[in-house]
Simulated assay, not measured.
Amino acid sequence: MTHEDVPYERLAAFQGRAAATAATGKDPVNLPMIRHWCEAMGDAHPAYEGPDAVAPPTMLQAWTMGGLSGHTGAAGRSEAYDELFALLDGAGYTSVVATDCEQEYLRPLRPGDEITFDAVIESVSPRKTTKLGTGHFVTTRMDVHADGELAGTHRFRILKYAPTAGKPAKRAALRPRPVVNRDNAGFWEGVAGHRLLFQRCRACATPRFPWLPGCADCGSPDWEAVEAGGTGTVFSYVVMHHPHFPAFDPPYAVGLVELAEGVRIVSNVVGVPYDKVRIGMPVRLEFLRVDDELELPVFRAEEEG
C-alpha cells in the first residue's frame, strides 16, 4: 500500500468519534503544579499565589495529561485514535509533527478543582502536500471540565505524513511561514504595512506582546493596538549554531529585544557580527524581505550615543 491508497471516506469516518469520554485528570488542580509551571515560564504574577490563587489559563491541557504511565481505564484510552493511526501508519504516513493548538478559557481553574475531560477527533483533512511530505492533518478537540462545569476547550492539530523521498531538487529554501490566527492576525497585518503593533489593555493600560485575547494583569478582553516607535535594546540573546535549517545560515544571533514602550519581542539582531551582539545594545526596527511572500521585523544594531 502506498500513501495514495487510503480512500478519504475511510479517514473522514473517524470525524466525530470519541477519543476520550469522561476521563479524569490524575491530580486535582493544586498549588505545587502551579508553582512549578510559573517557575518554568518565569511568570511571577500574584494571581497564581496565595489562598485565592488561580491556575494560569495556559495550563488548561496540563491537568489532562497522563504522564509517562498514561491514563488508566477505558475512559482515558482511545480506540478511535489507535485505529486511525494504525490506518495512517499502514499507508506509509509514519511520521508525525505537531502544527498548532488553540485554547478557549471559560472560567478560572482553582486549587481543589477536580478535572474531567472529553475528547473527540474533530477533523481529518484530505491529503495535503507540504514541504515535509504528503499527509493528513488530524485535529482533536478536548473539552475540559472543573467539578462538572465546562472550564475550557483545547484544540490540538498534528500532521501525519510520509516524508519526502530522496533528495529534493535544489531550490531556494523558504523561511517557515508564521501561524496566523484570530488572535494575532492584526499583528501580521501591521507587519505587512511596515508597522510593529503591540496591544494595550483599555482597562488597566498594561502593554503586552505577543498578542493575546485578554489582559494577563486584569483579565479584561478590551484592548487597542499601538504602534511601536521602533527603538529598543537587547535584553537577552542566543547565538544559533545548530541545527541547520533551510533558509537559515548559522551562526546568527536571536535577540529578546525590549522596546522603548516596555514590551519584548524575539527577533534577529542584524548589522553586526553575531559575536558582537551584547546585552544592552541599542537597536532599531527595520523590515527584512526574506522571500517574495514574507517580510519580517528585525532589529539593526546602532552605535551608542
Rank of each mutant, 00 (worst) to 15 (best):
M1C: 12
D5H: 11
D5R: 10
V6C: 07
P7N: 10
A12M: 05
R17I: 01
T21Q: 15
A22K: 13
K26H: 14
N30F: 02
H36S: 14
W37Q: 09
D43N: 14
Y48D: 11
E49C: 05
E49V: 06
G50T: 06
D52C: 04
P57W: 02
Q61W: 06
T64Y: 12
G66T: 05
G66Y: 12
G73V: 10
A74N: 06
A74P: 07
G76K: 08
S78C: 08
Y81V: 04
D82E: 15
D82S: 15
L84D: 01
L84Q: 03
F85G: 01
F85H: 14
L87F: 01
G90I: 02
C101G: 15
Q103R: 08
Q103H: 14
E104V: 10
Y105E: 00
Y105C: 05
E114L: 14
T116G: 08
D118L: 03
T130I: 00
T134S: 15
F137K: 07
V138E: 10
T140D: 00
M142S: 09
D147K: 05
R155H: 12
I158S: 08
L159H: 07
G166F: 13
P168D: 11
K170F: 07
V179T: 12
R182V: 13
N184K: 06
A185S: 06
A185V: 14
W188A: 09
E189L: 07
A192R: 15
R195Y: 03
C201L: 06
C204G: 07
F209K: 00
P213F: 13
P213M: 13
P213N: 03
P213R: 05
C215L: 14
W223G: 02
A225N: 14
A228H: 01
G229R: 09
T233F: 07
F235Y: 15
M240N: 14
H242F: 08
H242V: 12
H244N: 12
H244Q: 13
P246W: 02
F248W: 08
P251E: 06
A253L: 10
V254G: 09
E261Q: 06
E261P: 03
V266Y: 13
V270D: 08
G271A: 05
G271V: 02
G271Q: 11
Y274M: 00
R278H: 14
R278M: 04
G280W: 04
P282E: 05
V283P: 07
F287Y: 15
F287S: 04
L294S: 05
L294M: 11
E295H: 03
P297Q: 00
P297K: 06
V298S: 02
E302V: 11
E303T: 14
E303V: 14
